[in-house]
């Protein structure tokens, strides 16, 4: 089992009242799964994704990742965990504007403290695989949205994660670019990478093997 959420609650205090963002979420994810999370705006999709990605905490419940109890881990330990196993893909790509494509891809490897030669080989591999060798010295602003998201996915993959979390990865792309990214996800999943995506699009959701629907922070 990859990860397990047991009775997760998350809330914020607003005007003396608890507003629940997540309410009693239970979820088990096996390795190799492809899950789509759906639901209307404000239903807690992104929050759930952030909790899974350990970017956000929660107020109640248990979260086990590869049998490690995430809710009991210290910040540093948690960071090591997601650094090693999780890759993120964002709707707005979130590439660093000041760095070239090459340098953006290299960034996660720097934080894993890999050697220069190793980094070079891995970045070269990735550029090759995504067919963007010719663009390696360009800055994000010189790329189209689809190309930027391609780099975003490449960056998420470069540290060979077990799990990819994608928050509306096609939200800023046109349909053709969207299809390309989804096909890419499908391919990756077939290679054994677990993927959890948040999406509004029924069509994209169908790429997933399992669909989770959220409403007002609750699984339905």
């Amino acid at each position: 089992m990859l990860l397990q959420l047991n009775n997760i609650f998350k809330w914020v205090q607003q005007g003396g009242q608890r507003v629940f963002l997540l309410k009693d979420i239970n979820l088990q994810v096996e390795e190799g799964e492809f899950i789509s999370i759906m639901g209307p705006s404000g239903s807690g999709k992104s929050t759930l994704l952030n909790v899974i990605g350990m970017l956000d905490g929660f107020d109640e419940g248990e979260y086990n990742f590869f049998d490690e109890p995430v809710h009991q881990l210290k910040e540093k330990h948690r960071a090591n965990l997601y650094k090693q196993y999780i890759g993120f893909v964002f709707q707005a790509y979130h590439l660093i504007d000041e760095l070239t494509v090459y340098e953006n891809l290299e960034m996660p490897l720097l934080y894993k403290k890999l050697k220069g030669s190793e980094r070079k080989a891995m970045v070269a591999d990735m550029l090759d695989r995504f067919n963007i060798v010719g663009k390696k010295d360009l800055f994000p602003s010189q790329l189209s949205g689809g190309q930027q998201q391609l780099v975003g996915v490449a960056r998420a993959l470069i540290s060979k994660p077990k799990l990819i979390l994608a928050d509306e990865p096609t939200g800023n792309l046109n349909s053709q670019q969207g299809i390309e990214i989804m096909e890419l996800f499908k391919e990756l999943n077939e290679e054994g990478v677990t993927i959890i995506q948040v999406t509004h699009s029924e069509k994209n959701a169908q790429y997933g093997k399992r669909i989770i629907n959220l409403l007002d922070g609750r699984k339905i």
Partner: peptide, 13 residues
Amino acid sequence: SKEVGIKKVLGAG
């Protein structure tokens, strides 16, 4: 802030 956010997500301490 975006840069800081990304770097943190990518594992920057």
